[in-house]
Design a protein around this nucleic acid. Structure first.
Length: 265
DNA sequence: AAAAAACCCAACCGCATAGAA
DNA sequence: CTTCTATGCGGTTGGGTTTTT
């Protein structure tokens, strides 16, 4: 795999990217490794849901949407990395022929691949095809009906795209749990979450201190509980893949246990 | 060796939908 | 029934890396 994988996460070059801030004061742009770790940690605590709350309580200064995207497209441990295999490429072509630009649906049929990844692949793929086709046409006949619509085939090619059926809404690919159906109301849930945080000595206002402590642990290793200390070689990824991270339960008892561990640090 | 082009991928945006209030 | 909020999806963009000229 090429090394560009980490280009945006490792160390954002100082400058415009790093200081990009959305109107609401939220950070934008590439994620740092520390942010990834924080996010992974809080997803572990609260599960893959209530992203706004998670974003708020983590102190990440990102939108919930941004957090979710980062998680789903990059941090999720089930993701495969690297280039698509020939088999996968064939599958993408096949499924796209069947379902059109229903990327999330295609992604569901390809475990370990995200809709974004497939989308990106397809974009490159079709662009190449168009280019080749054009080149061939130019070689063959000069009067070729020069296709100026490079992009149309992508957006218009989907017979199935018009109906975003209800089935596609709640079926997030590669999720461990989603919270639409069985969650408490946002407000009461947030209260409960706050209660848990305070119980563990992690008040909404103190999360920064707490996070700093965690980050220090990441940085210096020694003092942190083992579950908080990823191997130095591939920190975020290995951390995310560790069993301890994925044994999460969804109920309050689990939360309390985990918070107890956090509080003990 | 340098410049340009192509490739690749992370991240953002806007819209649609479901569920709660 | 209407409004609001959270979430998910598809389209698009920006910019770093690699390859080609």
């Amino acid at each position: 795999m090429k090394m560009k994988q980490t280009k945006k996460t490792s160390a954002p070059s100082p400058g415009k990217q790093e200081e990009a801030v959305a109107p609401g004061g939220f950070r934008k742009g590439p994620w740092t490794e520390q942010e990834d770790m924080k996010l992974a940690w809080f997803v572990r605590l609260f599960g893959e849901r209530r992203w706004d709350f998670l974003a708020k309580v983590s102190g990440l200064n990102r939108t919930g949407k941004s957090c979710r995207l980062r998680w789903v497209n990059y941090l999720h441990p089930d993701l495969k990395r690297g280039r698509m295999s020939p088999d996968e490429e064939r599958l993408v072509v096949d499924l796209h022929a069947r379902w059109g630009n229903r990327w999330s649906r295609i992604a569901k049929a390809m475990p370990g691949r995200t809709d974004n990844e497939i989308k990106n692949y397809w974009r490159t793929h079709t662009r190449k095809l168009h280019k080749d086709a054009r080149a061939a046409a130019a070689d063959g006949a000069s009067a070729a009906s020069a296709s100026t619509t490079t992009s149309t085939s992508m957006s218009a090619a989907s017979p199935a795209t018009t109906s975003s059926s209800s089935s596609s809404t709640n079926d997030n690919h590669n999720h461990l749990h989603h919270g639409h159906g069985d969650q408490e109301t946002a407000a009461s849930q947030e209260q409960a979450d706050n209660q848990l945080l305070y119980t563990a000595g992690i008040g909404m206002d103190s999360h920064l201190l707490w996070n700093d402590a965690i980050m220090d642990s990441y940085a210096w290793g020694a003092a942190a509980p083992s579950m908080l200390v990823p191997p130095p070689s591939s920190p975020v990824w290995d951390y995310c893949c560790s069993d301890s991270l994925w044994g999460i339960g969804d109920d309050e008892v689990e939360y309390k246990k985990m918070l107890a561990v956090a509080g003990a640090s």
